[in-house]
Design a protein around this nucleic acid. Structure first.
Lengths: 210, 210
DNA sequence: GTAGTTTTGGGCAGATTGCTCAAAAATTCA
DNA sequence: TGAATTTTTGAGCAATCTGCCCAAAACTAC
């Protein structure tokens, strides 16, 4: 029992998420959150605790909407090479389409709060490691279904692909166009995963055996 | 004429630089700067203006010490492929060795202050574009001196290399080890620039024509 | 020494920060 | 209806923030 909350919790979280995503943790004040969510200061503290706890809740919601969804698609798509390609397509779409200069909330947060990263280790570093492991697993699946040459080492390449993802997220944050990011992903994947087709090679040298 | 300042300007700038580098712009207060530099509030405002102007001055000093120095070495080293390799070696050293979880001040700043990036466009975006152009130029030089296959397209590959650099800087900020970053650079460069030798390929497939 | 100039330290003003508390309003259960 | 529980509301707290000012100290030029 008790009084019914007037706000829609998910809606409030989404609004707060977008604000934190745009401005970062420190630059977002409680006042800003009050303005964007429409509910009073005390209501925020009552419903979500202090600013740091609120931010962590927002991070969880972000995880639900972005990373987890993308990682699930990694396992769902066949062949494995296509899954990786789609993973990066989703990454770009999610980093660019929703709003300008958003990038990835996880990456932005990790860069901004790196000095006090110990407190958020479970949230961020674990997520990144999980992504890397999933990528390695997918590469191994590509060995089985024949879409990725067995000569490609899963661990090393997953490491490099995660680094590629970090670069994409940062450049999305800086306002790079979707096309430019697509070109980077395409060129990198071609060089790393698909031996014969490499878009960063001039087309004159296409005649080369696989 | 007038009273001689008691502080060494370069020393103060270096201390402030390190602090901004560690904590970021918003999390660094004037009080923090007073503590770390040892001089009073008024002296800071007198010598460097307000916080934002001080930060820009610090960015300039950072440019002098890091980016510019690294870019100059790009042109100095022969062959061109070695120049690029050394560029990334310097990048890693500079991002990891000076202090833990520092990364690159430019990248950190760009990520943190992306929403108000218009005001710093000259400082950051220009620097990144300059780096990309320098990389492309170096690749062309590699075409001439024979260290990089002419099949490697300068613009596309420079684009990808810049993205690689962003990833390295972020991972350095997250505390990745020097060895891990070296592995990423080595694997990426091998795949992108040096056709026959690719460390992310298993050694069993080494017998392949160049 | 004197005048002019700059640094320095202290402190102040105004705004903003994150946060709390008590009372009012709304809902459920008895 | 009345008691219990929860949310909302608004006022306000203590601390910190940035930015600036002013008088005193220190230095240079004359």
């Amino acid at each position: 029992m008790g009084r019914t909350p007037e706000f829609d919790r998910e809606d409030v979280l989404d609004r707060a998420l977008l604000l934190f995503w745009q401005k970062g943790f420190h630059a977002t004040s409680i006042r800003d959150l009050v303005d964007v969510t429409g509910l009073g200061k005390a209501s925020i503290y009552n419903a979500f605790g202090n600013k740091e706890q609120f931010f962590k809740t927002v991070l969880d919601r972000y995880a639900m909407q972005s990373e987890q969804a993308q990682l699930q698609r990694l396992d769902a798509v066949t062949p494995a090479s296509e899954a990786i390609r789609i993973y990066f397509e989703d990454l770009i779409r999610f980093s660019v389409t929703i709003g300008p200069r958003l990038g990835c909330l996880y990456t932005n947060t990790a860069v901004e709060l790196a000095p006090r990263l110990e407190k958020m280790e479970n949230y961020l570093k674990g997520q990144f490691e999980k992504t890397e492991e999933r990528l390695a697993t997918t590469i191994r699946r590509g060995h089985d279904d024949g879409s990725i040459p067995t000569s490609v080492v899963p661990e090393t390449t997953a490491n490099i692909l995660l680094n590629l993802a970090f670069g994409i997220r940062v450049q999305a944050r800086l306002g790079s166009s979707e096309e430019k990011l697509r070109g980077i992903v395409e060129g990198s994947m071609a060089a790393l995963l698909f031996y014969p087709y490499r878009s960063n090679l001039a087309h004159q040298s296409e005649a080369r055996s696989a």
